[in-house]
Design a binder for these strands. Sequence first.
RNA 1: GGCGGAGUAGCUCAGGGGUAGAGCAGCGGGAUCAUAAUCCGUUGGUCGGGGGUUCAAAUCCCUCCUCCGCUACCA
Length: 533
Amino acid sequence: MLGPFAVSKTFYITTPIYYVNDKPHIGHAYTTIACDVMARFKRLDGFDVKFLSGTDEHGQKVAKAAKDQGISPQELCDRNSKNFRDLLGVIGASNDDFIRTTEERHKVACQALWKQLEANGFIELKKYAGWYAVRDEAFYDEGELTKNADGVLVGPTGAPVERVEEENYFFKLSAFQDRLLKFYDTNPDFIGPKSRFNEVYSFVKGGLNDLSISRTTFSWGVPVPGPKGDDPKHIMYVWIDALTNYMSALGYPNTSGDYAKYWPNVMHMVGKDIIRFHCVYWPAFLMAANLAPPQRVFAHGWWTVEGQKMSKSLGNVVDPNDMVAKYGLDQIRYFLMREIPFGNDGDFAEAAIAGRINGELANELGNLAQRGLGFIAKNLGGELPSPGAFTAEDTELLKAAADIIGPVREAMDKQGFDKALDAIWSVVRAANVYVDRQAPWALKKTDPARMNTVLYVMAETVRHLGILMQPFVPTSANKMLDQLGVPAGERTFAHLGYAHALKPGPLPAPTPVFPRYVPAGEAQAPKPPKGAK
RNA sequence: GGCGGAGUAGCUCAGGGGUAGAGCAGCGGGAUCAUAAUCCGUUGGUCGGGGGUUCAAAUCCCUCCUCCGCUACCA
């Protein structure tokens, strides 16, 4: 199956904008790593890629936090936005841009979109009276309220509510039910995984209410544009502000340049908590402005920690900095992409992480490279030998390594990271079997020419694996390719296959690429070999 | 309450009318190039319970139980 992006060869991928009041944790890292893997994969596959991340900086909670700390909201945003920007570096993200909703380019884009929606007749001013919870920044219906133990009226989240009468602008979301359903029908790949598609579909089918899109009770936001400059009373409320970031970063309302190049060839990666906003509101906003909806939204799951929900009160919130320091960056990236089918929830457990690192990265892949390159270093003076004629076994392995990009690409087009790695691992395992069967250490005495061919086939297979693993473990994969002497410009998927095979000659001294992980406090002593007396 | 998903080996999961599968863990063996890694073999399951359709059901139908997601509503 061709992916939705196969036609135009540009690919725009976004993380959500992270709320500056939050502290970066493994969940943020997960979303961003998934985007980064996609972005790197598409670049290696010949796409012109733009990868965006950023921070969401408006709202009452930010204003209040700043006030509590005696600083301006902008100061607070500057400080906290940096935490997320720093995280990108920590996890090796290759983003091309970083957008902040307090930037001028974003204000311009939001106001332009607003004016377009207004001109098209989809915004109206309505008096609204309702129960408002400051803590949740949300209105609740009368029926949703309960009295808590102290007799205070609270919303479904337990947040106290107050009666508020406000004049708000509303977006006529209700007008889009049919158009959205038709859009889903004709774009069955719009939402992944499939189960989320069905949820969104049935939500829209159940009917849509108009959406309040402005606030007058606080001022930390993008001003609503009026006929003569900004409306002094209203600021835009959350989603119309937040979602627009994806277009602000393309230069909207300028529809030439990046906008023309990348929109709507975009994929939004989101957590499952914000799927409705991306799959219902966002396409509706865009349709209302005569713009094309995005091509795909993928909602990923949550991580528990050792089987428990991650929460501040449990004190088990995983700091990405700690994890990277403890296990290694590529190791964490690999674990997060490999452990679960993307879209499912997963468990961030020491035993599982160690198992993946040692069993797969160190033992199977890392050791494969090291046993081959180490052999060449020790027995052939570090010279990659010239191969002789290939046997059926040689050809079979080389072909498997060269052809696996097909299934890998197919998996990646559906964000099946685990499936892609599964496919790559079929080659890793085949290569280890090959080495055992060919036994170059035995050929050393009996048939050195054949030994040379076997070592060459090994090295060439590792070259393929190095190229294929770059999106997932960029540093380590490139280290592998360095050790094979593969030039930096010859590491894309176009260089898979025998046409770009390794040239015999001197290689740098090999060192193991994926160290084994030894849990802190555990003895370094390895378990005794099987059959040891 | 409604809609949807799930329940298969110790663990994580795949399969979806025709002899129950993979990875990990376990057990046995081989190899000794390598990060004590690798390779081969193998134990293990009346496929959530019950009923039905069928020559044949993990698979289709009914029903019940348990878990999860979305959604609605009541006081």
